[in-house]
């Protein structure tokens, strides 16, 4: 085997593993002259980028060990093993850092990683499909799951509670949803107490009912 062939083989990224991976952050820029980088962290605690072992790039071919040096605005300053100068650090700009899903510790009772919930099929308790979970939010009043329905533009937002989501089976890839009243719009056939008024009719409708808002 010639040298050229050897070099090509060494640079070819390894085949990505089939197991799902989680993106923990992205290298945004070089920091200083000694090979440090700034990382925008996507984790709950910014420093947790380095907490789950070595990370890999998007292709899965390069494994990197990250050592956190300091926190910075919106992320962390870190050193990556084998990166010694600014040129090498600049070359890593834009690299996303992944770990296999199996590297994350088991969540607690009745806790689920967002990455496990997103993509699950939502089925109604009474039978029938509702849609697919596309996001999980928390605005300070409990977790909310967002479900998109085929053929509908507006997603459905549901509280992530035992009453509304009685069954979550992440391995089988589905959740059961007991749809509360008032979630779907009037056009979806839901019997809401307050019909959704057309644009410009809100004040009129409320005045007629003697309500202020």
């Amino acid at each position: 085997m010639g040298n050229a062939m050897m070099a090509r083989k060494a640079n070819t990224p390894a085949k990505p593993s089939a197991s799902p991976r989680v993106c923990l952050g992205v290298i945004t820029k070089a920091h200083g002259t000694r090979g440090e980088v700034r990382i925008r962290s996507y984790t709950e605690d910014a420093r947790a980028v380095a907490a789950y072992g070595p990370v890999t790039d998007e292709a899965g071919g390069r494994s990197m060990t990250v050592k956190i040096l300091d926190a910075s605005n919106g992320g962390v300053i870190a050193r990556i093993e084998g990166v010694e100068d600014r040129t090498q650090a600049t070359a890593l700009k834009g690299t996303k850092l992944y770990v296999p899903r199996s590297a994350l510790p088991d969540p607690g009772d009745d806790e689920f990683y967002h990455c496990d919930l997103i993509g699950l099929r939502a089925e109604l308790v009474g039978g029938g499909a509702l849609g697919t979970v596309i996001a999980v939010h928390n605005y300070g009043a409990g977790d909310v799951i967002e479900i998109t329905r085929p053929g509908r533009k507006a997603p459905v937002l549901l509280p992530f509670t035992h009453a509304v989501v009685p069954v979550v089976d992440t391995e089988a890839g589905w959740i059961k949803v007991d749809l509360p009243q008032g979630v779907l719009g009037a056009r979806d056939g839901d019997d809401m107490d307050v019909p959704v008024p057309a644009s410009g009719e809100i004040k009129t409708a409320r005045r007629a009912k003697g309500e202020r808002n």
Partner: peptide, 27 residues
């Protein structure tokens, strides 16, 4: 949540965060 306003829990600006290692707890 007692004493807070309802609007505090329904933000009007869009923010799409990243999930990474975030967890949801079923209430």
């Amino acid at each position: 949540m007692i004493g807070h306003k309802f609007g505090e829990f329904s933000p009007t600006r869009t923010f799409h965060g990243h999930s990474a290692d975030k967890r949801a707890k079923r209430a």
